[in-house]
């Protein structure tokens, strides 16, 4: 072994050691500050983690773009929905007067709220874009109850890390982190463009998450669960979910 290759050997060894310990420190810090998504395992884990961590570090409290009302699309695209169940049709024929949203899990006071209960909270209206992962988009005015108003009223326990939200539609649910759940634009939406939210757009109640792609905005929401773990509730990992195979974090 000549002089240069020995020096190189030592340098490479030091670099590797520094790299590995750096990675270990980064992982533990990332875990502590909530920068690791639930789908961080597997071959796509590193990419998904980098994306989630970057967005959480740089866009933590920032708002999704809002547009003037003049930008509202005249041809919003409803996308296809599964055939509506008999239970749904029964509620629909009653004007959704019996539609209920239950809020469970890590909240001080679990509750079941009707649509009129929701309307008693402060109302927010926002003109934001629906962005589908397929590539298409439209802008609409969304009117509803900010989710953070409901969660704060019911008291979120400090262990809470995620919100799971479940549709009345078969096997349709998703989850977001508490930061997204408490974000001012995350909206329990019951109105669209000055009217009630049409069924084709997710009415009577859709959870709009405008900083993420459309598939995170689940339609026909009936149940919210505040949890400390989304094990079993990450569509990206769950074979039964229509979102199977799609990344959990959809800010990109």
């Amino acid at each position: 072994m000549n002089k240069i290759s020995r020096r190189r050997f030592v340098t490479a060894g030091l670099a590797t050691t520094a790299g590995i310990s750096g990675l270990a420190i980064a992982t533990s810090l990332a875990n502590r500050y909530g920068l690791v998504p639930p789908d961080s395992g597997g071959i796509f884990g590193p990419g998904a983690t980098l994306t989630y961590a970057a967005h959480r570090l740089f866009s933590r409290n920032l708002l999704a773009r809002e547009f003037p009302r003049s930008k509202i699309s005249t041809t919003p695209f409803a996308n296809s929905i599964a055939p509506l169940s008999d239970d749904f049709k029964r509620l629909q024929s009653g004007g959704f007067a019996d539609w209920h949203l239950s809020v469970q899990g890590l909240v001080a006071q679990p509750a079941t709220l009707s649509l009129s209960d929701l309307r008693n909270f402060p109302v927010r209206s926002q003109v934001t874009e629906v962005v589908c992962e397929e590539g298409w988009s439209y802008i609409a005015e969304w009117i509803g109850t900010p989710l953070h108003e409901v969660l704060k009223a019911l008291g979120v326990l400090s262990r809470a890390r995620y919100l799971v939200y479940v549709s009345m539609d078969t096997d349709w649910w998703d989850s977001i982190d508490m930061e997204e759940a408490l974000h001012p634009q995350t909206l329990l939406t019951w109105g669209m463009n000055d009217g009630d939210l049409p069924v084709s757009f997710g009415g009577p109640l859709r959870l709009r998450v405008p900083r993420q792609l459309g598939y995170k905005s689940v339609k026909f929401v009936t149940r919210l669960m505040v949890t400390d773990s989304v094990k079993g509730f990450v569509p990206a990992l769950d074979l039964k979910s229509p979102n199977y195979g799609y990344s959990w974090y959809a800010g990109i």
Partner: peptide, 17 residues
């Protein structure tokens, strides 16, 4: 990804309609 919507638009919004 392109195959899921092989149409292109100009401006802010665009969809099948």
């Amino acid at each position: 990804i392109l195959i899921s919507h092989p149409r292109f638009y100009w401006g802010e919004v665009g969809n099948s309609l």
